[in-house]
Write a protein that binds this DNA or RNA. Sequence first.
DNA 1: TTGAAAGCGATACCAG
DNA 2: CTGGTATCGCTTTCAA
Lengths: 349, 349
Amino acid sequence: MPDDAHHATQKPTVNDIARVAGVSLATVDRVLNARPGVRRVTIDKVNEAIAELGYIRDTAAANLARRRVYKLLFILPTTGNEFVAALQADIVAQSAKQIHNRTTLDMVSVAPFDPQAIVQVLDNLSPADADGVAVFGPETPSVRDAVKRTRAKGIAVVALVSDLPSSDRDHFVGIDNIAAGRTAAQLMGRFVREQGRILVITGSRLARDHLERRKGFDAVMTESFPGLDVVASIEGRDDPDLIQSMLPDIFDAYPDLCGVYSSAAGNPGLIRYLENTARRKDLVVVAHELTPGSRAALQSGIFDAIISQDTGHLVRSAIRLLKATADGAPIDHTQERIRIDIYLQENAP
Amino acid sequence: MPDDAHHATQKPTVNDIARVAGVSLATVDRVLNARPGVRRVTIDKVNEAIAELGYIRDTAAANLARRRVYKLLFILPTTGNEFVAALQADIVAQSAKQIHNRTTLDMVSVAPFDPQAIVQVLDNLSPADADGVAVFGPETPSVRDAVKRTRAKGIAVVALVSDLPSSDRDHFVGIDNIAAGRTAAQLMGRFVREQGRILVITGSRLARDHLERRKGFDAVMTESFPGLDVVASIEGRDDPDLIQSMLPDIFDAYPDLCGVYSSAAGNPGLIRYLENTARRKDLVVVAHELTPGSRAALQSGIFDAIISQDTGHLVRSAIRLLKATADGAPIDHTQERIRIDIYLQENAP
DNA sequence: TTGAAAGCGATACCAG
DNA sequence: CTGGTATCGCTTTCAA
């Protein structure tokens, strides 16, 4: 027999408050929503009743009456890579579901590595257009200031994937990229079977997430794997073709290359190179983001491990955070922690 | 400027249906909820209107009017291990939050490895007591039949952590344990640096999850790591003390033991043994479930990797699934997939 | 077999 | 400043 002795008989409602406080529903509502035009004494009376009854507002009913619709906007880079594509697909998917939930999602793509484009979108936004916005972009002074202005307008802002701490964004939705880089290094160090050199492929100097991963990776390699030497990394700018074109020289220059850490986007270029080149079969490759392409590379043995973040979780978390921030609701931080996923052939979905 | 051209002007409501179909609200409701007492022609008329308008019911409003309260029950084993404790803590935490959500959570603990205890709880349950129940227990014929009877009573049932496929439960909330075992084997094989023997610690012969992990582990060890030999496993019955007492003999018998896979509960026993015994420092240990104890072992280097499933996710998923099943709502499967988490020192939260 | 009308819990407009 | 009342989208008596 379940032990359900302690459930309250009836959740108190606004009517209960009105009755106990001896005022009208309208007045209770005014106090509840901090609307003007109520005497101090009355406010206190109502608040006492609220406290006494342990009242907690029924958001569903409130939203129904208010006919509230949350308008959220996602700003993403137009880079056509699979990770961003997955993010977009998840946003579209959530969009369909959230309509039943009084929430509309919009998406706008801006040129990658172009801070001004983001600034413009942000500055054109009025509170009537959006209750909240998720920004996936570089941390530059202009972006930082635009985010500050956006929040000042009363629009909630979360940083997506790449953090914007200097902007005082409301929340960051993404992984700890330093830890992700450290994780990649640990896997690399343990998977490689001999001494040798490691190549790191980075993305953009502007992208905070890329820099952090690099930092974490280097730290662990130095601390824990002195037998492995990280050679100067190449900056692939998330461009598969560029990456593919740079690799032959690198592999020629370092015959003892025994590991590759692809820390940013552009995996297809790396995959194409490895597929078409005779290479030592014990080369260890660790990359980021589970996508159709990287998953195939994992299954075929080209990639040994993938560090990832769940795009579905990112999107759902951003939505919850934006809505909660928009109406000052509490947040379940344990649910919003984005995990640093490690995928091997065996546990890839 | 966001491209929000395509948002429907107004979501259709029951009133719209009533108008279009030329019937009253009450009749629309009867059809919507498959209530009796409506002529066939009328039903068709209403359904046409519904289809034409693309109506989708507003669950929040419906629940408000219905004053519906979802009553859910979790049945857990009383084993005092940290994993179950984490599950319980998450249930309590969710319980507090779900009250605001017209959902009450109850929890009942039954003797572990005791099918009859579960059967009794299930059989004593009436639809008035619970809309849904999550069962974490062994897959025995009696449990299977009890689950079937429970569903026949109109109560939704999900299997938690350990699947009960033969019972036709509505859903399984947990990881693919065969894949989890395979993942553990892959990590083990790649982390171990030489030839040698591997010890597997299992739990109970009744627990389907334990059996599946063992199966997956053995398969990959055989396929991919012929240099490693899995010695006869020990059945720890999730009992730390028992495990601790069995280990000395094992380690004495196999001096070339280079890896331990702790596939069930009882980690504290293993940890205590390893802490207090001089052992080869390159012994590789892979265990299950991230808990305070196993996390500490990971950080101190006693454990090399932990395969885990997020208890918070398990609980939230079970709740969503049970509610959705209870009112025949659609399910977002991508959100309900429980991931096989791999934790190393570097990415443990 | 069908419809009218009264709520559910909260908000908002209009008077007073 | 404060109160009455219609309304949100849906369910549920109670009559007809």
